[in-house]
Amino acid sequence: MARIIVVTSGKGGVGKTTTSAAISMGLAKKGHKTVVIDFDVGLRNLDLIMGCERRVVYDIINVINGEASINQALIKDKNCNLLSILPASQTRNKDALTQEGVGKILEELSKDFKYIVCDSPAGIEQGAHLAMYFADDAFIVTNPEVSSVRDSDRILGLLSSKSQRAEKNDEPIKEYLILTRYAPERVKSGEMLSLDDVQDILSLDLLGVIPESKSVLTASNSGNPVILDEKSDAGQAYSDIVARYLGETRPHRFIDGKKGLFRKLFGGG
């Protein structure tokens, strides 16, 4: 049986697709057969971030409508053969995504894959609803910023009321926090909400903090998930997250900011 992970946030542009690409690659690199699904019908982007945009032939709506088999629509990742991508449709209308259709696709993928990562669109409409509906785990991607925290709280409410697990009275979806675009210097100067501030409000299981990083843009420019950039801070932060999710204990990093050369040499801090 596969484990279904939804990467969600409510608010747009907080880093869901960046996170979906990174963790699905991370899980596959750790030896788990993984598929990542783009639920952003009409605004697909995951293909670009994964660097497979030229190989998209069929998409999730084609599969739902019976115009293609799931195996025809799946794209094998160029970097890792344990990872596949199911792209969203670019042109069709959003109502084409049905609960029954999505349910069938997830059921079929569950036979073959260990992890199914669902990249949710922003908002709380049909696409976002279906991305979370069948989930076992939810990664709540939040920025240290008021509107993002508020929307995350809103999403938590939906996870606990409008999901299959909620409706069937099963064990609730497991919710984790991923705090992204974190800038420790700005937190220190009191300009930005701190991790503790955010946790005082959301109190979730923390998977990790992703620093604001130039490497994210570089990665998306080249169509390689940032986790493959092992030297980058964001890449390392995502690797930690994958490891923690798989049960390893790793100390949290990137919360207090970079240690300066002086402090590195002379200790302290």
Binding site: E145, V146, R150, D153, R154, G157, V187, E191, L193, D197
Partner: peptide, 23 residues
């Protein structure tokens, strides 16, 4: 208070209110 702590205060009030009406 810094701008971050003001943000936190506003959030705490807002979120408590929204939780009570959504739930």
């Amino acid at each position: 208070t810094s701008s971050a702590s003001l943000a936190k205060e506003r959030l705490q009030i807002l979120v408590a209110y929204e939780r009570s009406s959504v739930n």
